[in-house]
Simulated scan of single mutants.
Amino acid sequence: MEWFDNFWAVYSNLVLTLGTNALLALSIYLTLSCGLLAMANGAFMGIGAYTSALLTMNAGMPFPVAIAGGMAAPMVVAFVIGKPTLRLSGVYLAMATLAFGEVVRIVVLNTESLTGGALGLNGIPQSTQWWHVALSLAVVLFALGRLRRSKAGRAFEAIKLDETAAGLMGINVDAHKMVAFVLGAAIAGLAGTLNAHLTFFIGPNEYGFDRGVEILTMTILGGINSLLGPVLGSLILTLLPELLRGFKDFRLVINGLILVVIVLFLPKGLWDPARLRRWVGMGSKA
């Protein structure tokens, strides 16, 4: 197994980043499944990362406590800001949540004594192991799969299709939106916690507008009609910079072009079960 040891020594961070990015894509999948175009997941990731890092570095807390704190902090923040922002919809909600992300970045920059400001936090304990990422991804996929088939999941789908009709059917639209928003924040915070304790360093610019667009691109690229879609999208966009290292300065341009192409030609993403069934049916007829 020497080849595997060599491979893991070189690419372990990349492999584990695939898992954390999959969690991020699933976090925004949850809000999109409820018809919410919320772009705050990058900020929630940052809140989780900084909270967990401060718990381990300053308070000496064990890693499980840091994980719990990294998930709880963005959940609380999401609940607080969700009250006013979830009354908005569409592009207005996207603008409001993007503005919130910028507020978080400015707060981090101006609390230098606590967060390190523009210099970020360095020397975070490398507590994240491969099984932390694998177990987290498996648990989130299992939980979202159960949620998708539950009464709440069907309510999410109804709200996404027609919010007014869902309300007339007796669905508590505001409560279900809040649940999707808060749970999405918890998953993003989990990804931030695992990533922070993997890379040793975090800085405020890692969780700004660029990160929010990247997370959305992953999910739209893969498709939101299945849990495998966001995972596939995150896999492609995480590996793409490695495959195109010479074009790293144009990473966001490439992400934007991919998003435009997908929206125009594959509006339901790469992984669309209905389209795959049609192709299989056409193949069997042939």
Rank of each mutant, 00 (worst) to 15 (best):
V108N: 02
L88W: 04
G90N: 00
R154H: 10
W131H: 04
A158T: 09
Y92F: 14
R146A: 07
L98D: 03
L137E: 02
K151C: 03
G170D: 01
T97F: 08
S89P: 08
A99K: 06
E157K: 10
T111L: 15
A165G: 12
K160F: 09
V107Q: 02
L98F: 15
L98Q: 01
L109M: 11
G101K: 08
Q126S: 11
N122T: 11
R149W: 05
E157Y: 08
V108C: 00
V133M: 11
G145A: 10
L137W: 05
F142I: 06
G116C: 13
N110C: 03
W131Y: 15
K160D: 07
A96R: 00
L144C: 03
Q129C: 07
V140R: 02
G123H: 11
L121N: 01
L93H: 00
L109I: 06
G167C: 12
R149N: 10
L86R: 04
Q129K: 13
W131L: 09
A166N: 05
P125T: 06
V140C: 03
V103I: 15
D174F: 13
I171H: 14
I159C: 06
T85F: 14
Y92D: 05
I171K: 10
V103Y: 12
D162I: 04
A96M: 12
T97A: 04
R87F: 11
M169Q: 04
R146F: 10
N110I: 13
I106E: 15
L147P: 13
L93A: 00
P125A: 04
A155V: 08
T111I: 12
P84R: 06
L88T: 05
V139S: 03
T85G: 05
G170A: 03
L88Y: 07
L135N: 01
L114N: 00
E102W: 11
